[in-house]
Write a protein that binds this DNA or RNA. Structure first.
Lengths: 195, 195
DNA sequence: CTTTGCAGTGAACGGCTGTTCAGTTATCAA
DNA sequence: TTGATAACTGAACAGCCGTTCACTGCAAAG
């Protein structure tokens, strides 16, 4: 099917996508061959081209799917209301969502440079849409006087970097529960921005 | 020379190291060939093996050199004294040092998975030595009552992730000076940890 | 002027790369 | 049972990979 249409936005087969995700997260896009992915699925390399146009599209679909799901989930958070409440909701959401999808998150900012220019731009659009959600919260809190920020845009980057950082060290079987984790990070963020 | 000794810790030729750094930061370790690196230096691929044992060692030397220079520079900061003062010094140092070396920083946590197990362990040792510097500051400030932290170790990860994040967005020709930048981040960190 | 030794060449090695495609197998509707 | 169609194989393609090595050119030491 994929072979015939040549479309750029096919939905890659779930089995293929899962195998690619796992292997690319582990070894990196450039280091993983189509034959390895095929072996993980349990088919020959040629069969993959029933599900994707080429290796580049396979990576792009991985990142695009992740970003779209992320934005969908984000859309369910309230877009208006008390900035402090919304900031807390965002922080807890971000940590919870990212900690559950370490492979997707890892790939999504590790393999950006392996995207073609067009694909890169497409992902960047989605990414900045996500960031602007936090940006809006910070600016709202700024105008109500609840937050004290010299540069909301910089704070956005700082908070997101801090929150996303959990993925580099948090282990499910460690001493900290996910609730503990969210509490700790929320305390840090709240104090960092509070007036 | 390198060809004969077979040593694991040779210092790769500076020209080769610089070329490898630039290309790997841009395209990724697995995506860059020895022939590309050689072309950047202006020699044939075979000549590289006068300076390094193999491609893996070339990457390892890049990361090891970076981490050793980082630790050297860190060693010049005061190890004792007022925790708040030391924390500020650390934050400003971290930002200043990292912002000047975007390629090294990028590679140093992007290409970790391309290291052999032994080389990976060696780099991890250096990395955790760096982190423990901040950890010590936070624990000191905790005991003097200047900081209010539920989990200093988590705070260490959070602060380092936040500070290192500048490299993903800061541009030299943007509206913010490096001093502005350090001031902004220091304000966030100070308020996040202060009692 | 000769000798020594390093730096670099360029060809070659086996092996792996993404991708294509004619041909085989399996599935399922009529 | 037949026919259609989707899924998959396995071989092949041209090309690049890391690494080795006999050989050349050159610079400095005796």
């Amino acid at each position: 099917m994929a072979r015939k249409t040549g479309s750029h936005s096919e939905i890659t087969g779930p089995r293929v996508q899962a195998a690619a995700l796992r292997l690319i997260a582990q070894h990196g896009f450039a280091a993983v061959s189509m034959r390895q992915i095929a072996a993980e699925v349990g088919v020959q390399a040629g069969a993959l081209y029933n599900y994707t146009n080429d290796k580049q599209t396979l990576l792009f679909d991985l990142l695009r799917t992740h970003m779209e799901h992320l934005l969908d989930a984000l859309g369910q958070l309230p877009g208006t209301g008390d900035p402090m409440t919304r900031l807390e909701a965002f922080c807890r959401f971000h940590i919870a969502y990212h900690i559950e999808r370490p492979d997707q998150v890892f790939i999504s900012y590790m393999e950006l440079r392996n995207l073609s220019p067009d694909n890169f731009s497409a992902i960047e659009v989605l990414r900045s849409r996500y960031e602007s959600h936090l940006d809006a919260i910070l600016k709202d809190g700024q105008s109500t006087g609840q937050f004290a920020l010299d540069e909301p845009r910089v704070t956005t980057f700082a908070v997101i970097a801090m929150l996303t950082g959990v993925n580099t060290w948090y282990r499910e079987d460690g001493p900290l529960s996910k609730t503990d984790l969210a509490d700790l990070y929320w305390t840090l963020v709240r104090r960092a921005v509070a007036a």
